[in-house]
Simulated assay, not measured.
Amino acid sequence: MQNKKIKKILMNKLALQEIYVTGDSNHIEIIAIGEIFTGMSEVKRQQSVYTSLMSDIMEKKIHAITIKSYSPKEWNKKKHNYSP
């Protein structure tokens, strides 16, 4: 599955402010930033991303995912350490 398609799915389903998707269909790395994650536990954040991609995971279009998710406030503190 193309990274652009994953990005589009997550942007639409989770109303994210920013998203970075890297890797290939064997291993996708996702950094998702959105208000939806404010006050949400790390487990709930990952569940929301997995749920949005579940049909593609079940169809084996995506094999493995690493997810990092942040509220915009959290991302503002972390983003200086990230370069896509």
Results as ranks from 00 to 15, higher is better:
residue 76 N to A: 04
residue 39 G to K: 11
residue 7 K to W: 07
residue 78 K to W: 14
residue 69 S to K: 01
residue 42 E to T: 13
residue 75 W to C: 04
residue 27 H to M: 04
residue 82 Y to H: 06
residue 9 I to V: 08
residue 14 L to T: 04
residue 1 M to Q: 10
residue 41 S to I: 11
residue 73 K to C: 02
residue 41 S to W: 13
residue 30 I to V: 07
residue 10 L to K: 06
residue 56 D to E: 10
residue 22 T to S: 08
residue 12 N to K: 09
residue 61 K to A: 05
residue 41 S to T: 15
residue 13 K to A: 08
residue 51 T to E: 04
residue 26 N to C: 08
residue 64 A to V: 10
residue 6 I to H: 09
residue 83 S to P: 00
residue 64 A to F: 09
residue 28 I to K: 11
residue 16 L to I: 02
residue 60 K to S: 01
residue 42 E to W: 13
residue 46 Q to H: 05
residue 62 I to W: 03
residue 59 E to K: 15
residue 69 S to M: 01
residue 37 F to Q: 03
residue 74 E to Y: 09
residue 36 I to G: 03
residue 8 K to C: 02
residue 22 T to I: 10
residue 27 H to F: 06
residue 63 H to S: 00
residue 19 I to M: 03
residue 41 S to Q: 09
residue 53 L to A: 02
residue 43 V to F: 05
residue 74 E to A: 07
residue 32 A to N: 08
residue 24 D to H: 14
residue 75 W to V: 05
residue 14 L to N: 02
residue 55 S to Q: 01
residue 65 I to K: 08
residue 68 K to E: 09
residue 30 I to D: 01
residue 27 H to D: 00
residue 58 M to E: 11
residue 9 I to K: 04
residue 77 K to A: 13
residue 10 L to G: 01
residue 38 T to I: 09
residue 41 S to R: 15
residue 40 M to E: 11
residue 10 L to A: 05
residue 41 S to P: 03
residue 24 D to F: 14
residue 49 V to T: 07
residue 75 W to E: 02
residue 69 S to N: 01
residue 71 S to R: 14
residue 48 S to V: 06
residue 80 H to G: 03
residue 8 K to A: 07
residue 38 T to V: 07
residue 79 K to H: 07
residue 10 L to Y: 05
residue 34 G to T: 12
residue 81 N to I: 10
residue 81 N to P: 02
residue 31 I to G: 00
residue 47 Q to M: 03
residue 15 A to M: 09
residue 73 K to E: 07
residue 71 S to C: 10
residue 18 E to V: 09
residue 39 G to A: 09
residue 25 S to D: 02
residue 6 I to R: 14
residue 2 Q to Y: 08
residue 9 I to P: 00
residue 74 E to S: 07
residue 64 A to C: 07
residue 3 N to D: 03
residue 12 N to C: 02
residue 62 I to P: 00
residue 52 S to E: 08
residue 53 L to P: 01
residue 66 T to E: 06
residue 56 D to S: 08
